[in-house]
Design a binder for these strands. Structure first.
Lengths: 240, 240
DNA sequence: CGCCAGGCTGTGAGTTGTCTGAGAGCTTCC
DNA sequence: GGAAGCTCTCAGACAACTCACAGCCTGGCG
């Protein structure tokens, strides 16, 4: 669903991302999301393809599934170690034992996420990786709207002087809202971006979380989170 | 269904849309509406046709019903996934369980609408999809007439400096009027575009909503909404 | 000038959409 | 292995919206 191009003016050149996963659906979902965020995306379905592709297209960052039919992700990374000369990797891993192994590998500029994840999170992590490795203008990791501020690196959130503690889901939701200020985001957009891509549950969670956020953010201050009945929600200043 | 060509100067080329639905009536209604909006429309009545048609006519956006007699819409999308290389899809789905399933698929540039819908909404969504995916000049999401402004992304409406709150139906009605400034829109056109295509109720709702809009827009300022007795309504400046 | 069809608008009922509290199941952390 | 925290489900209360209806108003025409 429509992501925004707000922050995507990659100065002159598009950043090239290589997405490696053997499930075509996953590749599709990720590629689409990243293209809409302004990245240039290539993909590969196996370890061998991945290695070939790195040589050919010289991506600036890779999204690499650990479970691949031929050479596993770790091995791909190892083989590229010499060649990749600092191409950072975002590993994808199932929620199981491999998690721990990956953690050990994500030293340099690397990072990892467990499947399933939300697109919001994926995009945010890629941005962080790029920022860290100096491959893009170091945009600030701060999102600010009115007196509300959110830092993507430190995960600190505050309204005015008051610090606010958010849970993981609340954070993703607020980050997505703040990345698209004033725009009315539909229920479907919010569910697609903020929840895991395989979320099939009750769409009413969204309302629950909006309610949580309001209790933390919109108390004792002008409300910033607004309901647009029949459509979705929007972050804006009260009009008037 | 007669809509306008006002905003449709697709610089040089027409945008090609493929409409896929097994109900000929629906295909007809949608095709008419889109042609009048300046799109070039092809249609297909089954999943197999759709796939063939994509290969043949290379549409830039698809309107795809999920319930098809042979291959369902999801499967069509999946089979096209490799080949379509980012052809965004607007899924049509009944208001039932499938809604949730579609949501998961509407990542990238896709979107969905539940049947029945209004043509006004359909056209607006296709425009949004095209704008987001960079397939047309990113026209502004702002509609302006005299001192009246309407933003499709933020859904904010204002007259001069004064912000105006509209309900969903009021918004669709005003958007349609503003997309066709000065033109006299007939009662039938308004009902067809702004209300769901299967609306069978009392045509007098229209007057009710015109009345609502006037109260919100045409108070304390020159009236912009004008009645053309026996025909319909028109958005224009008072003559003088 | 009076009549009538067409248009306007206030009232209200039914429907639909949203909010929020309570709690069940999970995970994580000690 | 227990406690705490988080995510998600559910249901009831509430609010907003849509539409129907009916009576009044208005403009056009004889």
């Amino acid at each position: 669903m429509q992501a925004t191009h707000e922050r995507n003016e990659q100065s002159t050149e598009q950043v090239r991302v290589l997405v490696v996963d053997d499930e075509p659906n996953i590749v599709d979902v990720i590629s689409m999301a990243l293209r809409f965020e302004g990245f240039s995306v290539d993909s590969a379905g196996s370890g061998a393809d991945a290695i070939a592709s790195v040589a050919a297209s010289k991506p600036q960052v890779m999204v690499l599934d650990v479970m691949l039919p031929d050479i596993d992700g770790f091995e791909v990374a190892r083989r590229l170690a010499g060649a990749r000369a600092g191409v950072p990797i975002l590993f994808l891993t199932a929620r199981d034992g491999t998690e721990d192994i990956v953690r050990g590998l994500t030293l340099g500029g690397d990072d990892y996420m467990t499947k399933p994840f939300s697109l919001e999170e994926l995009v945010a992590r890629i941005r962080t990786i790029l920022r860290r490795s100096g491959l893009t203008e170091p945009e600030s990791s701060q999102l600010v709207f009115a007196d509300l501020a959110l830092d993507e690196d430190t995960r600190e959130v505050s309204r005015g002087a008051r610090p606010i503690e958010l849970t993981a889901t609340e954070f993703r939701l607020l980050r997505y809202l703040m990345a698209n200020p004033r725009r009315v985001l539909t229920r479907a957009q919010l569910l697609d971006h903020v929840w895991q891509y395989d979320f099939g549950g009750d769409a009413r969670v969204l309302e629950t979380y909006i309610s949580y956020l309001r209790k933390k953010i919109d108390v004792e201050a002008p409300a910033l989170i607004h309901t647009v009945r029949g459509v979705g929600y929007s972050l804006r200043l009260p009009r008037g």
